[in-house]
Write a protein that binds this DNA or RNA. Structure first.
Lengths: 200, 200
DNA sequence: GTCTATAGGTGGATAGAC
DNA sequence: GTCTATCCACCTATAGAC
């Protein structure tokens, strides 16, 4: 069992600052100097906790992935129907954007070709995990007739992830979170079961 | 009237190489040295054509936007129905991805916060132009009952752009262009008019 | 238009004192 | 664990010869 570390642990604070910088500016556009300035320490001190930028980046991804998948698990634990699960899924993205941040792994996906292999692997695992969760929700939801869609669940999942990541990307350049929410709402609406005689 | 310049004009070749580098690696991850090496000239020579990297970036965006909007105009000139127009629109994206490139402005949208103001303006203009074209196609297509969707055309347009840009982003990290095409096809399918008695 | 040479800055990373 | 000091590579950009 790991020894409990307080939330203000130095490594954690470094990761917090670095995460924010990557989500706002990208991995190639932030430096150890940026993090050091924000924490009032020296660059050398950062290298004690994360010897190389590549390792820092890999840790960022692993933490983000764990936190994200943890949130998905909590959605499952809420035992709500598929529509509510998908709304909660989109809400995670909306919360990220609320602070003018891009999804960490969406940002890194853009820089993918320039990143070390360990980071590339982590990014793929993040999206694989996202897809797997969505596939389980979409499969169960369709079986229970809570949602409707044609074709393979994995393809419907990819449309959702693509729309949400793309909408974050675009909303940031317009500084308009409303635009993201509208895209998210419409993307989920495409999965809703049409009520036969609903007045709508 | 501008003096005609051959296609192998030096400035053009610089833009070609820089465009490819930005689409593959991002604006912050390529340098004058990269372009110079590819063209077998010196960095100093590049600065004669594009004094600063910011100006080079702004020129890249303007050229890309003009080329993209030109392609949209040619789609209009083909006088096909809305479904075919939208398919042709998605095909432009697919062609970009075919060379393992990201949409130039999608890539730059990720790096948006780190870019000079002139480039930020250009990126917004690119997406505004895309949206405007889609809105006109969606509006006319719905009026002619070639396609169907709820709500404002601009919102349907944004879902499409988001899905396509997001799908490019994700397909690159999986090196799987098929994944992009599937997302594109499904996104367009959501706009298709449901044939009442179609066997499907 | 292209070159050599170089300035002036910042990048990630290390050695060694405390 | 944090510091000072430093290394070396690379960055954008400029001066001035050809």
């Amino acid at each position: 069992m790991a020894r409990p570390t307080v939330a203000t642990d130095t490594s954690t604070r470094i990761l917090d600052v670095a995460e924010r910088l990557v989500q706002k500016r990208g991995f190639n556009a932030f430096s150890y100097a940026d993090v050091a300035d924000a924490l009032n320490v020296t660059k050398a001190s950062l290298h004690y906790h994360f010897p190389t930028k590549a390792e820092l980046g890999a840790c960022l991804i692993e933490r983000y992935r764990g936190s994200f998948l943890g949130a998905l698990q909590r959605i499952n634990d809420a035992h709500v129907d598929a529509v509510a699960q998908l709304r909660a899924y989109a809400a995670i993205y909306a919360d990220v954007l609320e602070n003018d941040r891009m999804c960490l792994c969406g940002m890194l996906a853009a820089e993918y070709a320039t990143l070390p292999a360990a980071m590339q692997d982590g990014i793929r695992r993040f999206f694989d995990g996202n897809e797997a969760w969505l596939v389980s929700v979409l499969t169960a939801g369709r079986r229970k007739q809570q949602i409707a869609f044609a074709g393979r669940p994995v393809d419907a999942a990819r449309v959702l992830v693509a729309a949400l990541e793309g909408a974050m990307l675009l909303a940031r350049s317009r500084q308009d979170a409303t635009q993201f929410r509208t895209v998210a709402r419409r993307s989920l609406a495409d999965l809703r079961v049409v009520k036969q005689a609903a007045a709508e």
